[in-house]
Nucleic acid binder design. Structure first.
Lengths: 118, 118
DNA sequence: TACACCTGTTACCTATTGGTAAGTAGTTAC
DNA sequence: GTAACTACTTACCAATAGGTAACAGGTGTA
């Protein structure tokens, strides 16, 4: 009996690894949405983010932003205002996620519509 | 003191919701990679998948495939062979994720290269 | 003085995720 | 008859994710 060995090409293996890497950086319930909000709005202060990412707790938002900052996707800037305010924005690395973010937004909207049709 | 009310447009809010919906369906460490493998290869049997998604345990693969099947992204077909084999492939709904998957693959590859340059 | 707003932190808890190791049940090859 | 292949499942466990609620330490406003 002949054995079929399925061998993925080098480029496929690299792509799958790339998908995993990307997924790791955007892991969890909120990170992609946070990047999306920053992408659509440009800059956000902590409280504004927490108001627009509906349902996120400050503790969780804080942790997610730290993760994103650590991976150089988000930049945190403390402004010398009274009271102090902090601005979050995407780095150029973060902005380079735009294809993914836009595709996810569009797909999600279509998916939701397709569920309603049923 | 004037208050700035940051109001996202309806379309932005919808996009953020879409991103969250998409993220929910592709949640976890492996789902995006599984969809990617099926996207690049077309069809896969259980054991072939577990060989190509390096590191995944059969229990976890089984659970992820069930989740994806439940959300109509993956189709499971039992073939009447000896021994029985099972094929997994993307549904048309699953195939419609291609933009996201390709973008994730490309971004991940670039990201990895940018890390090596440092 | 009391309250509100800023950006978070801390303590605590639970549910889920993801992992290991082994087993099940049928078929085929040596 | 025994080992190996197919596709899983089961029992068990540890780490993490993510949630609630309260609070901290600063400034400004009534």
């Amino acid at each position: 009996m002949e054995k079929k060995k399925i061998e993925l090409s080098e480029s496929c293996r690299k792509s799958i690894q790339g998908i995993k890497d990307t997924q790791d950086l955007l892991s969890g319930k909120w990170k992609a949405a946070i990047v999306g909000a920053l992408f659509y709005n440009g800059k956000f202060r902590f409280m504004d983010l927490s108001r627009h990412i509906v349902g996120i707790a400050p503790k969780v938002l804080s942790k997610e932003l730290k993760d994103l900052e650590m991976n150089h996707l988000v930049k945190r800037t403390v402004l010398d205002t009274m009271p102090i305010t902090v601005e979050y924005e995407l780095t150029s690395q973060g902005k380079s996620l735009h294809k993914i973010i836009e595709a996810m937004g569009e797909w999600g909207i279509r998916y939701r519509k397709s569920l309603l049709r049923k």
